[in-house]
């Protein structure tokens, strides 16, 4: 009996060696330990047939063999399970270099990205945003802004006409007058909006966007205009951007100025963007003309102010180095998909 048990153990050990998966492990377990026909179970039942004096020793041995088998089976099961788990994990391998599935992607038009960035700079300074009609009267678009009828200053603003009186605004400046008519100083506003001029070439489109700014209060100076716009260009084009003010002419401001910025592309050394001058003209500005104050009923002796206007499309052209303004209005997705928010 003893040798039989030891033989079973040996046999078990030998078969255990050959077990490579959980299924054959179960088979092995059943072969030796199945409650009915397991080889060891059968052998254990035979113990009761032995003489009484032999039973304790053989019984002890039998339990030891059983314990051995159960322990070995458990150990092997754990090992196999661990191997199985490892295999499963390995098999779950994916190609992480395949690009991800993007959620539906959309984006703002570059002109709006630039407009919102410009708005943000002035909103942070405490300006409010104002709006006005696209269809204007000759009075608000020109006369109130000190552009007399039959004056060559109107030449630069080829105008779309609707009838004798109504036209499409050529600038956002009429909103200056509309706001001042409604409100007393202090005033600090920006006016982004669509404007219209009869020009159509690589840098001009028959409609475009402008942003106007106006500050009116007691004691506003040309120095304030300079400081404000210098801050603006640093915020928009980068901290190192320098501003240069040159005398210019606009009927509704005096003194008037054009503002150039140092070329952010070449740093002022001269490149294609700045036409080798190192400077890029960015906007027109000036101190509000006393005639405009008179039109809206402000006392020019008491109040002074400054105003500026710039083409948002033009800023976008410069900022993104786009060479053809007409691209803005073609709305080709391959164009629109290139832009992202300006931080």
């Amino acid at each position: 009996m003893k040798s039989k048990l030891l033989k079973l153990k040996k046999e078990f050990q030998a078969e255990l060696e050959g077990v490579v998966d959980l299924r054959s492990l179960v088979d092995l377990k059943n072969k030796f330990l199945s409650r009915k026909r397991g080889l060891l179970t059968v052998a254990l039942k035979e113990i009761s047939l032995l003489p009484v004096e032999e039973r304790p020793e053989i019984g002890k041995l039998a339990n030891k063999v059983k314990g051995f088998m159960e322990k070995e089976l458990t150990l092997r099961q754990r090992k196999l399970e661990a191997e199985e788990e490892a295999r499963r994990i390995k098999e779950a391998q994916i190609d992480i270099t395949i690009p991800g599935r993007l959620p539906p992607m959309g984006g703002l038009h570059p002109i709006m990205l630039v407009k919102e960035k410009m708005e943000k700079i002035f909103l942070e300074l405490g300006y409010t945003v104002e709006d006005g009609p696209d269809i204007e009267t000759d009075y608000y678009n020109f006369v109130a802004l000190n552009f007399p009828k039959d004056h060559p200053a109107r030449d630069s603003q080829a105008t779309f006409l609707i009838d004798e009186e109504l036209l499409l605004r050529t600038q956002t400046s009429p909103v200056q007058v509309r706001v001042m008519e409604k409100r007393e100083p202090p005033i600090r506003i920006i006016v982004p909006g669509r404007c219209f001029r009869r020009d159509w070439d690589i840098t001009h489109t028959p409609n475009f966007f402008q942003m106007e700014g106006l500050v009116v209060d007691e004691g506003i100076t040309l120095g304030d205009l300079k400081g404000t716009l210098e801050y603006f260009v640093r915020q928009l084009f980068g901290k190192k951007t320098k501003a240069r003010f040159r005398p210019s002419f606009f009927p509704f401001t005096e003194p008037s100025a054009d503002l150039d910025i140092s070329c952010f592309h070449c740093g002022g050394k001269g490149c294609r963007l700045c036409k080798s001058s190192g400077w890029i003209e960015i906007l027109g500005a000036g101190m509000v003309h006393p005639n405009v104050f008179k039109v809206v009923g402000y006392d020019p002796e008491r109040y002074s102010g400054f105003a500026w206007g710039m083409g948002i499309d033009r800023v976008a052209l410069i900022l993104y180095q786009i060479e053809d303004a007409r691209l803005f209005y073609e709305n080709d997705l391959r164009f629109l998909q290139q832009f992202r928010e300006i931080i």
Binding site: T128, R188, G223, K226, G227
Partner: peptide, 23 residues
Amino acid sequence: ARLYGYDQIPSTMPLWRGEDAGA
């Protein structure tokens, strides 16, 4: 101003005494 030189005019920021503003 133009003969004096715009670049000779010191840059300042306007004081604000208006109401709260913003978008």
